[in-house]
Design a protein around this nucleic acid. Structure first.
Lengths: 317, 317
DNA sequence: GTGAAAGCGCTAACAT
DNA sequence: ATGTTAGCGCTTTCAC
């Protein structure tokens, strides 16, 4: 499929490149008959301007890199999907990369992407990086939900806010023995806030069970959870909560009757589990809006904003 | 972040562009001291070659478009994730697009992508297209699991094969009243095959309940399903099967004890539902291998291959 | 009204 | 061993 170029169009029409360009960009000062001719030829040969060349000339980049070491979870898909929609309107598209490590994969990607984009959005990275590390790349980085190296944009997620809402909801609905199953600091902090605000006053008790937070963990921690006799459990992830739901179903433990359950992430699984899972949702739309705004109106100062998560009530509590 | 260029490096070093280029590409015939100097400068200024320019010059493209109107399901993420890994080794990256329609979105994407890629992989498209429609774009299309316009690569999925395996498994395990809930022709065909091969001989009976195939449908069809008194149900999608699992749980219907359940897609949900869901998996690795092979060794003739799906046994049957 | 020409950053054939 | 130069496909200034 040989690309047809301006030059070929010029030869074909016997006109100069400049004139052909004028016609195709709908600029003034071309006599109608020449205009017609060029248009006809362009149509006939399916002329499409080479964007790579145009962008090189205009020093304009129309892609944005998306880095994540985790393509597994469904929330990631939600984020990218939402971002794609927004970028599209701005004539921009996401290029995906899933580096397995910093020193080789990450570097290779940055090299390969140089010149086609100005910005790289980093959702997850296999290893920590410093501002120093990034200095060598002629790119602006936008870190999402991640400790941010000096001098780069960072859009942080306040995971605590949604967790706090969730816990307060549990307490207000009469739950008094609340177990946190997982271990992320961000979640602990939200729970702490809820107890500070109303939990302690209401006489609620707080328990903690340290655990990894995959599906299998929620399932395997079942006995340990029961042993602590909670009337509500907050899990660090939806996957983990789903694992516990499975355990509960097998043991005929009523959810939310006997135990209320809340997860984190608002994964698709929440709407597909039985009962449907209350969870804490990421501020996807808000963050992506901000990303697009950074891309479209470049600024000198680095953005650093924090966005709250929010509690989503479903059947499990 | 101003890009540092070969030209600047040449000025800085007082050498010609050619020599600088020689050094950086590790070619022969440069005296050590000049080599050293250039290397030092490149290091110091964090020189990165502009790939957009290099690719323009070399007429080489290092991206591949991925079109899908459906970014919702987790299988899509699996596919893209797997493809990304394979492309990466080939120095190539996926650019995502989610066109909402052919006439505007699709066209805009093809225009915007012209010159940066040679191939576009089409997973799903909002409307049917013909070979004619695609003629206007200087791109090769690889259609996956989709009716393919004339003269383009097509990698088809034989959905029937996995379904057939699934149904035969059910029959061999003593199920005799098998209900198909959904309506896709591809599934029907697989079920037919299974009955032709062993079902009829074994005296199994086949029933059909027409339905859309989302989560809510699996749930809402619960009563209609029970009414037909099946001992096994095959659902067109995992989401739908999960919906029925929820219904069954609420009604205390033993799965797989009373009713065996099989879904389709091998979504993440399969491993996270209770009980875990038997399903039919897409030939992701096989298809992506083929895609990469098409990209890396261009050919005149169009590829057209069909890949079988396969049955994945879990707890639900 | 139209065209020649420079140049975006890079490569490589062709001098020297 | 090193530099000059043309050109990938495009945009745009500046002449005519």
């Amino acid at each position: 499929m040989a690309q047809i170029t301006l030059k070929k169009l010029a030869e074909l029409s016997g006109l100069s490149i400049r004139t052909v360009s004028r016609v195709l960009k709908n600029q003034a000062y071309v006599v109608p008959e020449k205009r017609e001719l060029v248009l006809k030829l362009a149509e006939q040969y399916h002329y499409l301007p080479n964007m790579a060349a145009r962008n090189l000339r205009l020093q304009k980049k129309s892609f944005v890199g998306i880095l994540s070491s985790n393509f597994q979870t469904e929330v990631f898909l939600q984020k990218v999907n939402d971002l794609e929609r927004r970028l599209f309107s701005a004539g921009c598209y996401p290029i995906l990369g899933r580096p397995d490590n910093f020193s080789t994969d990450f570097r290779k990607m940055m090299r390969d992407w140089s010149g086609v984009m100005d910005y790289v959005v980093v959702f997850e990275l296999p290893s920590p990086v410093s501002g120093e590390d990034l200095l060598e790349f002629p790119l602006d980085f936008i870190f999402v939900d991640r400790e941010t190296p000096a001098d780069h944009h960072s859009l942080l997620i306040d995971r605590g806010s949604g967790v706090c809402e969730a816990i307060k909801h549990l307490i207000r609905n009469g739950r008094r023995r609340i177990l946190h199953c997982g271990g992320h600091e961000s979640r602990k902090e939200g729970i702490q806030r809820a107890f500070d605000e109303i939990g302690t006053a209401e006489g609620a008790r707080r328990m903690f069970l340290e655990s990894p937070s995959e599906f299998r963990d929620g399932y395997s921690q079942g006995p340990a959870i029961l042993q602590r006799n909670p009337d509500a459990v907050f899990f660090d992830t939806d996957r983990m909560a789903a694992g516990f739901l499975k355990f509960a179903m097998e043991r005929n433990i009523a959810i939310p009757g006997k135990i209320a359950v809340v997860g984190f992430d608002d994964d698709l699984i929440c709407r597909m589990s039985a009962p449907s899972l209350s969870s804490v949702a990421h501020p996807i739309a808000e963050i992506n809006t901000e990303i697009v705004s950074i891309l479209t109106s470049p600024r000198k100062e680095k953005i650093c904003k924090t966005f709250p998560t929010r509690f989503i009530l479903r059947e499990s509590c």
